[in-house]
Amino acid sequence: MTIANTGPLAPVATHRRRPYGLLLVATPVLLVAWLVIWPIISAVIQTAFVTTADGGSAVSLETYSFFFSDGYSLSNLSMTLWTTGVCAALLLVVCLPIALYLRFSDSKVAAYVQGLAIFPMFVPSIILSFAFIRVLGPNGTVDLLLNSVGLPHIRSPYLTPWGPVIGLVWDNIPLTVLILLSGLGNVSNQSVEAARDVGAGKFALLWHIILPRISNSILVAISFAVLGIFSAFTLPYILGPAAPEMMGPFMQRTFRELLESKTAITQAVVTFGFCIVFGLFYVRSVAKNRAA
């Protein structure tokens, strides 16, 4: 399976331009148009206009000004920003060493480490949430072990802002490692050996040779993680505090429990706004990657 290996669409040798190609791709393309593009456009339109008394419509940013003046919404937003930032930083701190190790090691242990680093990809976040509670929750396994050696209980991260952070980092390790590793694949052994040859120490090597080469991969990994984390739902919903909550659970509650769909959609558009840079960067990178 080489999603990206094929390059962009390699030029097709047949030179007939018959519309039945369009016919074959029509259904999925229309689905994307209807269920991705249109909802986004409609969300923006819906929240930016109000129906006036005489039945016409007028531009109004009322819902946004409400969002940005409402203390609760703002604290949810800042909690989301905080979580996203902390997660992104932690992911780099955790995954970069793993990826570096995997790239430059060929020992047997490396295969095992790689297997472990990929493994969370095969653990659905709902099972992860349950495991988290059983291990780090009140009276969880960690408590049991501490208790058995006579130490006091931990302050459980369950239902605190750190709960989602731990869960999200765990969940995002595999793809971050894979993306970084794939970036490190572009650093040739020769260039590393050449740098050591002229006397670069390990730190200089990392700073001057390796990091510049993989800066793009780091940005892609971060973008991908940010897009996933910013509006994460399951983990913050189960592991996070009830208030303030992250944008995911917040939107869900506004939509399903308060039945305020317009407010929920406003919140969604706000998340789009905060992630637009990462989204564009991510798409550009993937597209460029396939076009390379």
């Binding site: 969300a43 509006s231 994460a232 969604a268 989204g279 991510y282």
Partner: peptide
């Protein structure tokens, strides 16, 4: 994949 997933879900 260019938008935060849950936000998109809410829009849908």
């Amino acid at each position: 994949h260019a938008f935060p997933k849950f936000g998109l879900l809410v829009a849908i």
